[in-house]
Simulated assay, not measured.
Amino acid sequence: MLINDIPVSVNQGIIAMKPNDAFSSEYLLSWAEANMEEVVSRANGSTFLEISKKNFREIPFLMPNEAVLNQYDKIAKPYFQRIVSIQKEVNQLAKLRDTLLPKLISGELRLPPEMSEARQQDKTTVV
């Protein structure tokens, strides 16, 4: 499950829930996560589980009033934005690690002496 912020195309094996003025992406994702057991229980397949649109549409969908949805979005959106921000940072750090680690291992890059000493102290510290 994911929220996509760019246009995508999907095939018949994927069910896309498109946000609208009434239901935000965050609400739809939260609903899907909360109802995943029900989704899986209605899915079938020998290679991998797949749910038909017919079986998916039969799952009850909680439709709170506009005030409740607005309050949910007011609270939830900042958390989801933070998750996206952290994930972007994780991806950037992973790229940096993948770039630097081979160079450190091969000796092409060396740590400054003060960083090497700090690492040695970390290894010998007993907690």
Score class of each variant (00 low, 15 high):
residue 51 I to M: 07
residue 51 I to N: 05
residue 51 I to Q: 01
residue 52 S to W: 12
residue 52 S to G: 13
residue 53 K to E: 01
residue 53 K to Y: 01
residue 53 K to T: 01
residue 53 K to I: 02
residue 53 K to N: 04
residue 54 K to D: 05
residue 54 K to G: 08
residue 54 K to Q: 09
residue 55 N to P: 15
residue 55 N to H: 10
residue 55 N to L: 05
residue 55 N to Q: 12
residue 56 F to C: 04
residue 56 F to S: 04
residue 56 F to N: 02
residue 56 F to W: 06
residue 57 R to V: 00
residue 58 E to G: 07
residue 58 E to R: 10
residue 58 E to M: 09
residue 58 E to A: 10
residue 59 I to T: 04
residue 59 I to G: 05
residue 60 P to Q: 00
residue 60 P to M: 01
residue 60 P to C: 00
residue 61 F to N: 14
residue 62 L to A: 05
residue 62 L to Q: 08
residue 62 L to T: 11
residue 62 L to H: 11
residue 62 L to V: 09
residue 62 L to F: 13
residue 63 M to R: 15
residue 63 M to S: 15
residue 63 M to I: 15
residue 63 M to L: 14
residue 63 M to Y: 12
residue 64 P to T: 04
residue 65 N to W: 09
residue 66 E to H: 15
residue 66 E to P: 10
residue 66 E to S: 07
residue 67 A to L: 15
residue 67 A to M: 15
residue 67 A to Y: 14
residue 68 V to S: 10
residue 68 V to K: 07
residue 68 V to N: 03
residue 68 V to H: 02
residue 69 L to V: 09
residue 69 L to W: 11
residue 69 L to K: 05
residue 69 L to Y: 09
residue 70 N to Y: 06
residue 70 N to Q: 14
residue 70 N to F: 03
residue 71 Q to H: 09
residue 71 Q to L: 07
residue 71 Q to P: 08
residue 72 Y to S: 09
residue 72 Y to Q: 03
residue 72 Y to K: 08
residue 72 Y to P: 04
residue 72 Y to I: 02
residue 73 D to V: 14
residue 73 D to C: 12
residue 73 D to W: 06
residue 73 D to S: 14
residue 74 K to A: 10
residue 74 K to V: 01
residue 75 I to T: 12
residue 75 I to A: 13
residue 75 I to H: 11
residue 75 I to R: 14
residue 75 I to M: 15
residue 76 A to S: 03
residue 76 A to Q: 04
residue 76 A to M: 12
residue 76 A to Y: 02
residue 77 K to G: 05
residue 79 Y to L: 11
residue 79 Y to S: 13
residue 80 F to Y: 10
residue 80 F to K: 03
residue 81 Q to K: 11
residue 81 Q to R: 09
residue 81 Q to T: 07
residue 81 Q to A: 12
residue 81 Q to Y: 11
residue 82 R to T: 02
residue 82 R to G: 00
residue 82 R to A: 04
residue 83 I to Q: 04
residue 83 I to C: 13
residue 84 V to W: 04
residue 84 V to Y: 05
residue 85 S to A: 12
residue 87 Q to S: 12
residue 87 Q to L: 03
residue 87 Q to R: 07
residue 87 Q to G: 00
residue 87 Q to D: 08
residue 88 K to F: 06
residue 88 K to D: 06
residue 89 E to S: 11
residue 89 E to D: 07
residue 89 E to I: 08
residue 90 V to I: 14
residue 90 V to F: 07
residue 91 N to P: 02
residue 91 N to E: 12
residue 92 Q to I: 00
residue 92 Q to A: 06
residue 92 Q to V: 01
residue 93 L to E: 03
residue 93 L to C: 13
residue 93 L to S: 08
residue 93 L to T: 02
residue 93 L to R: 13
residue 93 L to M: 13
residue 94 A to F: 00
residue 94 A to P: 00
residue 94 A to Q: 15
residue 95 K to P: 05
residue 95 K to I: 13
residue 95 K to H: 11
